[in-house]
Simulated assay, not measured.
Amino acid sequence: MTKYTDDEIRNMSKVTIKIAADYLGISTNMLTIGMRNNLLPIGFAIRNEESYRSNWSYSIVPERLIAYNHGKINEIQIENIENSINTIVSQFEEMKRDLVFLLSENDE
């Protein structure tokens, strides 16, 4: 298990599940379950149910990971960020539905 510094995490273009788990000193399984159940506020776990079977995608925010590791994450800040992101996601989903509708009209 490699131990990463805050600066190494901060400078990564992408923090993987393995890297985040090593940084926190937990298993990858614990990390993914914690993110899926909103118990580990270091990023986002997104369930994709559009494929044959559902799968998960994870996005880890380096600064949130570092703050969590140092016990400095503020739950109110996280809630506000997540509410904003949920709003953005719903707007994109609405745009996607509109685009699919427009494209289906063009096919007819």
Rank of each mutant, 00 (worst) to 15 (best):
F44Q: 13
F44M: 14
F44W: 12
F44L: 14
A45P: 05
A45Y: 04
A45H: 07
I46H: 11
I46E: 13
I46Y: 11
I46R: 12
R47Q: 13
R47M: 15
R47G: 10
R47T: 10
N48S: 13
E49D: 15
E50F: 12
E50H: 15
S51A: 14
S51I: 12
Y52H: 10
R53I: 10
R53H: 11
R53C: 02
S54Y: 06
S54P: 12
S54E: 09
S54R: 06
N55R: 01
W56S: 00
W56F: 11
W56Q: 05
W56C: 04
W56M: 06
W56I: 03
S57A: 05
S57R: 14
S57Y: 12
S57Q: 11
Y58W: 04
Y58E: 03
S59A: 10
S59Q: 06
S59L: 07
I60G: 03
I60Y: 01
V61K: 02
V61C: 06
V61E: 02
V61Y: 02
V61A: 05
V61L: 07
P62H: 02
P62Q: 05
P62I: 01
E63T: 05
E63P: 00
E63S: 05
R64L: 05
R64Q: 07
R64P: 00
L65W: 00
L65I: 02
L65V: 01
I66G: 03
I66Y: 03
A67V: 01
A67T: 01
Y68F: 10
Y68L: 02
Y68I: 04
Y68A: 02
N69K: 10
N69P: 08
N69Q: 10
H70K: 15
H70G: 04
H70R: 15
H70P: 05
G71T: 07
G71S: 07
G71K: 11
G71A: 09
G71H: 09
K72T: 15
K72Q: 12
I73M: 10
I73G: 00
I73Q: 08
I73K: 06
I73D: 05
I73S: 08
I73H: 04
I73W: 04
N74W: 05
N74S: 08
N74P: 00
E75A: 13
E75I: 10
E75V: 12
E75P: 13
E75F: 10
I76H: 12
I76P: 00
I76E: 15
Q77E: 15
I78N: 13
I78D: 11
